[in-house]
Computed example of a mutant assay.
Amino acid sequence: MIVRPHLHWFRMLLAWRGSVLPQLLPRLFIVLALSIVAVAAHDHILKLTVNLSTVPFSLIGIALAVFLGFRNSASYDRYWEGRKLWGQMLNETRSLVRQALTLPRGGDAATRESAHELMSLLAALPHALRHQLRSTDPRADLESHLPPALFERVMAARYRPAMLMLCASEWVQRETREGRLDGYAVLAFEHNLNGLSDVIGGCERIVSTPLPFAYTVMIHRTVYFFCAMLPFGLVDSIGGLTPIFAVFVAYAFMAHEAIASQLEDPFGTEDNDLALNLMSTGIEVALHDLMGEPTSLPARAPEQFIID
């Protein structure tokens, strides 16, 4: 994802990286070429003249705008849910580390050492989940957070975030068996661990259930057919200005369709997907901060744009 501070209105007009315009340029050039052909045919430069009424384009354009609105709403709902789930992960992991520091009985040194063990598991969790959602190799990230034996155990699992949750539950069980946690403390830990399980399951649901393909391809075909025929519907009324208006309308429709396509999978690596690298690091920094351990990891995005 591209993360940048709020731009001045004029700079926003010229923004390039992070917009979908670069990937749309070849398609817009095709619309421009069709517009030039339509103008040439209308002026009888070519032997074939194709003039269409604007009425069907008005009706189709209104219907297409409604369909694109539903498409964008459905895609943004997935993006927004993913954003909320990762925010919930930050809250749940913070609560677990706080409880690990304050609820167990025993000396401060033993409590902090035991809490650090749980904190390492929780700090590795967002990295493991990010790699699972993106189908990438988590080895480098997990190896730096986990002891060797635990690292090998987690890497041997297919669903590594779930294995880390199991290890966290085993930590609670061990603390209970050794008498450092009472029943009320166990319930508090289990409540937050269940919340983390809901986060993992929610993210997996978004990845494994995309929007219906037939619905997506129908809108995609309609947008491109509409944009290809639009110059021949405009040329009779606006003449030589057809290329300008046809390209502008095509950009509006194609851009909405392209943005919706990116937001449909919010955990990907495209410009407008969630900044999971930055969010994973932010959770890790928050947990180290609760432990009173300084870290050189960035807690927020730099002022210039980044790809994450």
Rank of each mutant, 00 (worst) to 15 (best):
I2G: 02
R4M: 06
H8A: 11
W9Y: 10
L14N: 05
H44I: 02
L48S: 06
N51E: 13
S53P: 08
I60E: 10
N72V: 13
W86N: 00
V97K: 05
G107I: 06
D108M: 14
A109R: 15
A115N: 07
L118G: 01
M119Y: 03
L122Q: 01
H127K: 12
T136W: 05
S144H: 13
L146Y: 01
A149I: 10
A149Q: 15
L150Q: 12
R153W: 00
A156S: 12
L166H: 13
S169R: 15
E178H: 10
R180D: 02
G183H: 10
F189M: 05
L193T: 03
V199C: 00
V199F: 01
G202K: 09
R205V: 00
I206A: 00
V207R: 08
P212Q: 08
A214Q: 10
V217G: 01
V217W: 08
H220G: 07
D236A: 13
S237V: 13
G239E: 13
G240E: 14
F248N: 08
F248I: 14
M254W: 02
A255G: 09
E257H: 09
S261M: 09
L263Q: 12
E264D: 13
F267Y: 08
F267W: 02
E270A: 09
E270L: 12
D271R: 12
L276Q: 03
D289Q: 14
L297Y: 02
A301M: 09
D308N: 14
